[in-house]
Design a binder for these strands. Structure first.
Length: 285
DNA sequence: TTAATGCGGCTAATCATCAG
DNA sequence: CTGATGATTAGCCGCATTAA
């Protein structure tokens, strides 16, 4: 049995970051839960069998299949009595997590199951992830993230391959991509969702529903999270005042900015910067 | 107080089916 | 083959509710 865990502390990633990973040959009837976690967790079965239960549904799974656990969702899973499973897992979170997963057609409640058995690629990526434990922390975090992106892209690719990318999905994605591009270009200015919809050339309400079907969040939510992420970068890497940072990420009112920041990050911008400085100070002792 | 969201209803276009 | 008919889908609109 080999279980590896780590908590990233060298990098401060918001887009995507790994919480833990590992592999295990389970004992018969070995189980986890029922419980919930505060990150996404993917299991991929190398051999054997087991069951996975979520939302009142029970899935019998075997080698080549896997399941996704979403944050704050109660789940239970158990290895088979005669042929217990051997699985890999990776736990992760970040702003990109749910959009990447939904592009892989994975959803913790409605569709938590995936299947990939055309080759050993997924196993290789998981093995790679586990081997990185021997590297220097900064290297293993960066490369680990690379492995995670590889795992997710393999899942997304296999889905698209199967479906041969229906043209409908394609046009939907181009609209959605236009939105993220516009946000990327204009987050520092005052921009409304209606304006974005006008620029894309679709009805505001309709565009929002398209966007939500891809990202699982409204355009507004995406914009706010994007702005706060940029603000975090500025707070970390510059000496600009909180008011200046607010203006740089498109907030005219610094008070409004602080309020929103606290709502998203759970802490005020000032304290966020302070606690980063403290961490750095501690590390240097 | 303004802007954003979500939802149901509506239209028009496209697609599928099938009898004549 | 063709035209009638019904089902689906893309997209818009208006309104009540919610959030910034």
């Amino acid at each position: 049995m080999q279980i590896l865990e780590y908590v990233p502390n060298h990098l401060n990633y918001h887009d995507l970051y790994i919480n833990q990973f590992g592999k295990e040959q389970c004992y018969p009837k070995h189980h986890q839960g029922p419980r919930a976690r505060d990150y996404y967790l993917i299991h991929y079965i190398k051999s054997g069998k087991g069951i996975f239960e979520v939302n009142g549904k029970s899935y019998q799974l075997e080698a080549g299949q896997g399941f996704l656990i979403c944050p704050d969702v109660n789940t239970f899973y158990q290895a088979d009595e005669e042929n217990p499973w051997y699985y890999y897992w990776v736990g992760f979170n970040g702003i990109q997590a749910d959009s990447l997963l939904s592009q892989a057609k994975l959803c913790g409640v409605n569709n938590p199951i995936f299947e990939y058995n055309q080759d050993n690629q997924l196993f290789d990526y998981f093995e790679e992830l586990i081997r990185l434990q021997q590297c220097k922390p900064i290297i293993s975090e960066l490369k680990g993230l690379g492995s995670l992106y590889s795992i997710l892209s393999t899942l997304i690719h296999s889905i698209h391959h199967e479906e041969d990318i229906p043209s409908r999905m394609n046009t939907k994605l181009t609209y959605v991509k236009k939105v993220t591009q516009l946000i990327n270009d204009n987050y520092a200015k005052k921009i409304t969702i209606s304006e974005i919809a006008n620029r894309v050339g679709l009805d505001r309400s309709y565009l929002n529903s398209l966007f939500k079907s891809v990202y699982n969040k409204s355009i507004q939510e995406f914009l706010i999270q994007y702005r706060i992420r940029k603000a975090c970068e500025l707070l970390e890497k510059s000496n600009f005042s909180v008011s200046q940072v607010a203006r740089f990420v498109g907030y005219e009112d610094p008070l409004q900015f602080s309020k929103t920041f606290k709502k998203v990050k759970g802490t005020s911008p000032k304290y966020y910067r302070l606690s980063l400085e403290m961490e750095e100070f501690d590390a240097n002792i």
